[in-house]
Design a protein around this nucleic acid. Structure first.
Lengths: 246, 246
DNA sequence: TTTAATTGTGTAAAATATACACAAAGTAAA
DNA sequence: TTTACTTTGTGTATATTTTACACAATTAAA
């Protein structure tokens, strides 16, 4: 039996039969899922963290993770962990990247798969608050336990890209929202300012907003119109993007 | 000990200490890497496959995979497997996605991480040809072993998107190439035709091509100029893309 | 009724993408 | 050596998209 750590040595090509027997015995690795759960509240992008209870990382925050069960699909594990840690289900969840450095976890070899979720803070009250679970401003997230800072950074970057190509953001808003709500969301996630008129023009041109003929309530200024996102239309018109651009 | 397969049940929140002990004992899963190695030759996009030697899949082709060693970084495993199966190293390799259905592999529970590579068929002769390793037209890839068809499809889609946002394609060309070479490459990978003049205009406008003042040789028509890709300039000018577009 | 805040709207200018045709350079064959 | 063939190299007019920017209308609060 050979294992190599640096990828420079070679070993004889092994048949899948040989692999098969290994699968039964040794050569297995602990596998976890870590969830990076983004939310939006008070015009700020937030993320859910818990307090690490490993001595080594006692004062540090960490992502929501757990081991994947032997008989559990990877995606199912992500949904389970989200539910288990927060009490929430029926939310959008997407795999982002796997992290597999040998020494990334102090408890031994653990390869982890990162999943991202976007939830509406106001409309999804957390039902479980163990381990000091709560929302943190993404700006204030530094120095997480393990390699969780790296995982978080990767997920944040992923989110910024993703939200420009897919209408993820609507998951962070109430069903009915104003265009200002929508713009605040994009500005918070992309950490940028946009021109209000051009932003409107862009979204109206996409033609995925349904004017529900209601107005904002209780705002100390002229109220804006409320809209819903037309998911059905989006699914049908989804664009096949071709254009070299780097 | 509880494991759940459907993500609907919950179990008590477990401390990382508890996890730590589990890592030492049971609850480990075989982890593999599968490499989807794309190449380009005769103006066609190719992919490397080997013959599966599992009885159940005896007549089928499969991706280049192997288990990840206990003490081997995930990325290192991908590079090792590529080298082991093909004799090649020093090529671009990127993680794409992990696949973790419980029943995806007949030999038992194996979660696999897919990596993509792009290599120049002409300039990287394969040094190992075990298991009938050879290049297949991507068009002819159907009905792979295990869930490899699904993995391949995901990687092919990933590649099509990736190549429009990053100058990956230059890995598939010789160091010196003509604009026709470049266009053939994009047309093959994106499976589309483009206007020759506009294609040129676009690439010249990017300003990442270095005119090396040489011409094509041995072509039965007016020879084209040869170029190199300016990786340094690209790295510096790399664009921070902001633009909602879906 | 006045002030403060924010919504709703349009247009001109700039940048980018698209469609399209002909002369020039080489090889191959008569 | 001429002619036919193939492919390169180039420019312009048009359409589309993006950007920058200002003022009147609506509401709540003072």
């Amino acid at each position: 039996m050979t294992t190599v750590a640096n990828g420079k040595m070679t070993k004889p090509v092994k048949s899948l039969m040989a692999i098969q027997s290994e699968v039964q015995s040794s050569n297995r690795i602990a596998l976890s899922v870590d969830c990076v759960i983004f939310g939006f509240d008070e015009n700020k992008l937030k993320v859910l963290l818990i307090r690490s209870d490993l001595k080594k990382y006692q004062s540090k925050w960490s992502l929501l993770g757990d081991l994947v069960g032997q008989h559990e699909d990877l995606d199912a594990a992500a949904y389970r962990i989200l539910k288990q840690r927060t009490g929430l289900d029926d939310v959008y969840l997407e795999q982002v990247h796997s992290f597999g450095s040998v020494s990334r976890h102090p408890a031994g070899r653990v390869v982890t798969v990162a999943y991202c979720s976007l939830i509406n803070v106001r409309h999804h009250k957390l039902k479980i608050l163990d381990n000091e679970l709560h929302w943190h401003d993404v700006q204030s997230v530094t120095d997480l336990a393990f390699d969780h800072q790296q995982i978080f950074n990767a997920c944040y970057q992923w989110l910024q890209k993703r939200i420009q190509e897919h209408p993820l953001g609507f998951n962070l808003l109430p069903k009915k929202f104003s265009l200002r709500d929508l713009q605040n969301l994009y500005e918070a996630i992309l950490d940028t300012k946009m021109d209000r008129r051009n932003f409107r023009k862009k979204f109206f041109a996409m033609d995925f907003l349904i004017d529900i003929d209601e107005m904002e309530q209780d705002v100390p200024h002229r109220p804006g119109k409320l809209y819903k996102f037309n998911y059905d239309k989006y699914e049908k018109k989804k664009k096949k993007w071709v254009g070299i651009d780097f």
